[in-house]
Design a protein around this nucleic acid. Structure first.
Length: 671
RNA sequence: GCCCGGGUAGCUCAGUGGUAGAGCAGCGCACUCGUAAUGCGCAGGUCAUGGGUUCGAAUCCCAUCUCGGGCUCCA
């Protein structure tokens, strides 16, 4: 054995150290601060503990606590500490899995005698965790055979199940695999102090005293392995960071998200509400929310019109026959409201989707290839019986409006339609101020699917090709498609980085078959059309919620329900204020003038709280010079003495919806 | 649907067994003001709903509805 080994640092430099030197020793040799910040190390591309000895030729990259990888290690280690605290406080508790997640960690438990955590227990657990941190327990890694592992965890059935999974070599998802660790046929464990051992791949921080900047955030139920047919465990969520300052900053981010919450802003800005009388998941839009919807819908209609869509309308209920033909009653029934019995035993259903109705329009007469692609658009109100626990503000409701369209085209037209559709979607979303997207491709569901494998393959491939052409990140969602076909969804990131599933585009060869659709081709024989389902907002309600949160209620001028409010300084300026308002209205601007019933400061404040884009103040000098004082949202310094004409002109432009040229319109240059 | 926690005035909340309170919002009067809260007064609640325990329930128990955080599901 050589007495020295040479290792390489990320900057390419080499260091020779005595054989047996650990990474921790190396870090200490490089610098005190690095040693203090180090939590793990990547040796030849594998993330491991700092206690690992260095070997000849190793490429060493020390991972510090203030990086994403480092925080994962901190969080995973903190999860172990939490499990140990829970086992101390509830002897006999069983622990299942406890991974690091975005911004934190969780651990799932089964408490003795079916006990449940309550919110109050979080403080007790936290206190015990602090004690464990203060004890400075080492994280000791051990490797065991499967038989040894099963013995160590004799009283831990969830751990045993994971180990048995390793033994059987069954596919483990990432979270579970992170628990098992080790090489094939072996498992690794980490031991803390005398009383706690956990199955784990690691790596972990060297000692619990490296932790401490954490906070437990909530308790929840969670099914073992995410399967609702298996036992429900008690999950505790927490967050952990490299410093208290980072914890503070995270909590601040949560507050920011709460401040933007569309449910809160919806009430504050008087946009919509959920009257209890209507039942769960059923919203009413108030005048201001209704106006925003109208602007959104009007703009969408304009764009669809430009893009060659025709407009259709269909009823909200139908006899069961339609959904029997479509397959909805076979595959989608549990998401549908129960039927109404009418007219001598006929069953009527509220529609959960618009597609079968549009098919009937297609089938209302013989179609020719000359008519294709036929694009039918509708703001279709649909109703879905969502399970009681899933309704959530406007993002998950039981009555919703889809900006739904179905494109009927030939097989040959499909690729081109998909490509222009993706361009259309992204342009529309950009018009609403979203810039950051990625695409998700959802493939055939394992259980609920109609059609042959070949048909699914073809449709999926068409979607994949269209997606790849978009130069956007594409992620796979295996098994996530609808029962009749695969889909692409456009995921949008909002102003604070959260992702929202918006638009969906689905290729469907099944419903055309089920409804025996055909068109007459150039060859004078009948052909089956392909059907593309697509919704760009997704639903008006969800898109509305996204906009509220994206803009934190401060809508861009073109979407603001009130764009300008004119405030007279005194009673004797009211007439002038109304005159200014009338000029703005005539220019298509949504403007109001108030009377001088309250002090000016109070009226300014009110307008600011309503997040109006512009507040105009008019007083003596303005009446005399035909000017206004402009107080723009987001600005601290009002602009005095702006001429009325120039302001009206400015708003005439700014208050109008965005305009973009539509590549798929086919009428470019017509003017 | 499942687990945990809530539901008191339009909103935010206080009130844990002795017949309900504040701030803001609303209404009235006065104030007429140059860029984020003028003053005074008034009105407003069968304490989510229905049962139960109790001499007495916002408060304790049960059920239902509904909301929030999660799980599962999803536009």
């Amino acid at each position: 054995m050589p007495s020295e080994v040479t290792v390489f640092l990320p900057d390419g430099s080499a260091r020779s150290v005595p054989a047996g030197t650990t990474v921790a020793d190396l870090a200490a040799g490089i610098g005190r601060r690095l040693a203090a910040a180090a939590v793990a190390v990547e040796l030849d591309g594998v993330l491991v503990d700092l206690s690992r000895p260095l070997f000849e030729g190793a490429k060493v990259r020390i991972v510090t606590a203030d990086t994403d990888e480092g925080r994962d290690v901190l969080r995973h280690s903190t999860a172990h500490v939490m499990a140990q605290a829970v086992v101390r406080l509830w002897p006999g508790a069983r622990y299942a899995i406890g991974p690091a997640i975005a911004d934190g960690f969780y651990y799932d438990f089964e408490l003795p005698k079916g006990a449940r955590f309550s919110e109050d227990d979080l403080e007790r657990i936290e206190a015990e965790m602090k004690a464990i941190v203060a004890e400075g327990q080492l994280f000791l890694r051990e490797e065991h055979t499967i038989a040894e592992g099963l013995e160590i965890f004799a009283d831990q059935p969830y751990k045993r199940e994971i180990i048995e999974g390793v033994e059987a070599g069954v596919g483990l998802d990432d979270e579970v695999a992170a628990e098992a660790g080790g090489n094939p046929g072996a498992v690794s464990t980490y031991r803390n102090g005398p009383g706690f051992v956990d199955l784990c791949r690691g790596p972990h921080v060297p000692s619990t005293d490296r932790l401490g900047h954490f906070k437990l955030t909530r308790v929840a139920g969670a099914y073992w392995r995410g399967d609702e047919h298996r036992p429900q465990l008690q999950r505790v969520y927490g967050t952990a960071w490299e410093s208290d300052k980072a914890v503070e900053s995270y909590l601040h981010r949560l507050e920011e998200a709460e401040r933007r919450d569309h449910r809160r802003l919806g009430a504050e800005l008087d946009l919509f509400s959920f009257p209890a009388e209507l039942g769960s998941g059923l919203a009413v839009f108030h005048p201001k929310g209704g106006l925003i919807r109208k602007v959104m819908e009007d703009y969408s209609r304009t764009r669809h019109s430009d893009a060659g869509y025709s407009f259709v309308n269909t009823p909200h209920i139908t006899r069961s026959d339609l959904f029997e033909t479509s397959g909805h009653l076979q595959w989608f029934a549990e998401s549908m409201f129960p039927p109404m019995e009418l007219d001598e035993g006929h069953r009527y259903y509220l529609k959960p989707m618009n597609c079968p109705f549009h098919i009937l329009i297609f089938k209302s007469r013989q179609r020719s290839y000359r008519e294709l692609p036929l694009r039918m658009f509708e703001f279709g109100a649909v109703y879905r019986y969502e399970k009681s626990g899933v309704v959530h503000g406007l993002t998950r409701v039981r009555g919703m409006t889809q900006d739904d369209a179905h494109i009927f085209c030939t097989r040959e037209q499909m690729a081109g339609e998909l490509r222009s559709l993706l361009i259309f979607v992204l342009e529309l979303l950009r018009d609403f101020g979203l810039e950051d997207f990625y695409l998700e491709l959802s493939t055939m569901p394992e259980e609920k699917a109609v059609g042959t494998l070949e048909e699914w393959e073809e449709a999926t491939e068409a979607l994949r090709q269209a997606a790849l052409a978009m130069d956007l990140e594409l992620v796979l969602d295996p098994g996530g498609g609808a029962f009749y076909g695969p889909k692409i969804s456009v995921q949008a990131r909002d102003a604070i980085g959260r992702t929202w599933q918006m638009s969906t585009i689905q290729v469907d060869t099944q419903l055309p078959q089920r409804f025996d659709m055909d068109y007459v081709g150039q060859d004078n024989t009948r052909h089956r059309p392909v059907m593309i389902h697509r919704a760009l907002f997704g639903t008006v309600e969800r898109f509305f919620a996204l906009l509220v949160e994206h803009y934190a209620g401060a809508f861009p001028t073109w979407l603001s329900p009130v764009q300008v409010r004119v405030l007279p300084v005194r009673d004797d300026h009211v007439a002038y204020a109304r005159e200014v308002r009338a000029l703005l209205s005539a220019a298509g601007v949504r403007a109001e003038a108030d009377d001088a019933g309250e002090p000016l400061g109070a009226r300014i404040r009110r307008a600011k709280l309503e997040k109006l884009p512009y507040v105009l103040v008019v007083g003596d000098s303005d009446v005399a010079a035909k000017t206004v004082g402009v107080n723009a949202r987001g600005s601290d310094e009002p602009e005095r003495g702006v001429s009325v004409e120039s302001f009206v002109e400015r708003l005439r432009v700014e208050a109008a919806p965005p305009v973009r040229r539509v590549p798929s319109a086919g009428i470019e240059g017509a003017l």
